[in-house]
Write a protein that binds this DNA or RNA. Structure first.
Lengths: 107, 107
DNA sequence: CGGGATCCTATGCGATACTG
DNA sequence: CAGTATCGCATAGGATCCCG
C-alpha cells in the first residue's frame, strides 16, 4: 500500500526523468523510430554534442533509452526507446492535451 | 493546426510549470482543499518561507493557483487551485500511474 | 561519426535574518 | 501570520577544442 510520501517521491522522480532541456525532443523523436546520434543532432540543431550525449546518457541510465553500438568504420550508434518509455506515451499525451487545451483558453 | 515545434514547446512549458522543487507537493495538497500559507509550511516542513513563497508566486503567475488575501489581524492568505489546474488532474494521475507501475517492474 | 575534456555562465535552491 | 532581503552553494546548461 503506497504512502502519500512515496507517491510524491515517485512523481518527482518521473518528472525528473523527462525534465532535461532536450529530453522531450529526444523522446518525441524516438517515439517514431530509431535514431542515430548524428540524426538527432540534425533534428535538434541547437543542441551541442556535449549536451546531447549527456541527455542521452541520463535517459539511458533511467532505463528509457537503449544505446546500441555497431563495430563499424565509420562508427554507428543507434538510440531506441525501451518498453518502459513506450508505456509512458499515454501520460505524455495526456499532459500534452492539457497543455494545448489550457493554452487555447488563455489565448 | 498545430506544428510539431509548437507541440514540443507546449510540452516543455507544461513541464516547467509543475517542475519546481515543491510544486508537486503544493498542487497535491491543494487538490484536496484550500490551504493557508502557514498550513502549507506545516505540511511541508522542509520548505523555507522564502522558497514556499517563490513556488506559490510562480504557480500563481502560471495561472494554476489563486491567492486570496483577507484584510484581517492577524493576516490570513489562502491558496486555491484554479480550474485550469484542476483539469490537469488526469494527466497528473496518468503520469503517476506510469511512475509507480514502472517502479514495480524494476523493483 | 560519435563522442570526451575543459572551462565558464546561469539558474535553482537553501540558510539566515528581519518585518508590516 | 505571512511574508521579504541578502548571501552563498550546487547543479544544469553551454562554448570551445580535441580524439579514436
Amino acid at each position: 500500500m503506497a504512502e502519500v510520501e512515496d507517491v510524491r517521491r515517485e512523481m518527482r522522480r518521473a518528472l525528473t526523468m523527462i525534465s532535461g532541456k532536450w529530453k522531450l525532443e529526444i523522446l518525441w523523436l524516438l517515439y517514431q523510430r530509431t535514431y542515430r546520434f548524428g540524426e538527432l543532432r540534425r533534428e535538434i540543431p541547437q543542441v551541442t554534442p556535449h549536451m546531447l550525449t549527456k541527455q542521452l546518457r541520463e535517459l539511458e541510465g533511467d532505463g528509457l533509452v537503449t544505446r546500441k553500438v555497431y563495430a563499424e568504420v565509420p562508427p554507428r550508434v543507434e538510440y531506441t526507446l525501451t518498453d518502459e518509455a513506450r508505456t509512458l506515451k499515454p501520460a505524455f499525451e495526456s499532459l500534452l492535451a492539457w497543455a494545448t487545451s489550457w493554452d487555447s483558453v488563455r489565448g
